[in-house]
């Protein structure tokens, strides 16, 4: 999995590319946790992720926990149907703000 992180219009945009599973979750974790700072606004574009395993789900929760503790805001966009279903079925979806498109995500982050 590749992880691209860039700043666009004062938002941090994270673009994981590839599966997030037991092998790649640490890469995602290290990259995303490092950019969560007090007040930061982060858009995670999941459109390049086709599969997320339970390790991926857990790392998303860890991201949520750090963001909450730092008063940072995170919005997920571009979730495919499978990932959306597994996040809904496991209840993890309730922790996140989810939007369909990048524009809607930017709007949600103000």
């Amino acid at each position: 999995m590749e992880l691209n992180i860039k700043t666009v219009d004062q938002l941090t945009v994270v673009e994981p590319l590839g599966d997030i599973d037991g092998k790649t979750a640490p890469t995602f974790q290290d990259g995303v946790l490092a950019i969560i700072e007090p007040g930061s606004r982060i858009l995670i574009d999941m459109s390049g992720v086709s599969f997320m395993s339970s390790a991926g789900l857990r790392v998303m929760l860890l991201t949520h926990r750090k963001a909450t503790g730092s008063e940072a805001r995170i919005v997920l966009v571009g979730l495919n149907e499978n990932i959306l279903n597994s996040m809904t079925a496991t209840g993890f979806i309730n922790f996140f703000t989810v939007r369909n498109t990048l524009d809607e995500g930017r709007e949600a982050l103000g």
Partner: peptide
């Protein structure tokens, strides 16, 4: 039940909140 395929283990949610037809998992 949560089946963790990465770890090949099962663990169990604390519970669920039920509001009509809607269900929220409590992890």
């Amino acid at each position: 039940r949560f089946v963790d395929l990465d770890e090949d283990i099962v663990y169990w949610y604390h519970g669920i909140d039920v509001h009509g037809d809607r269900e929220t998992k409590i992890f």
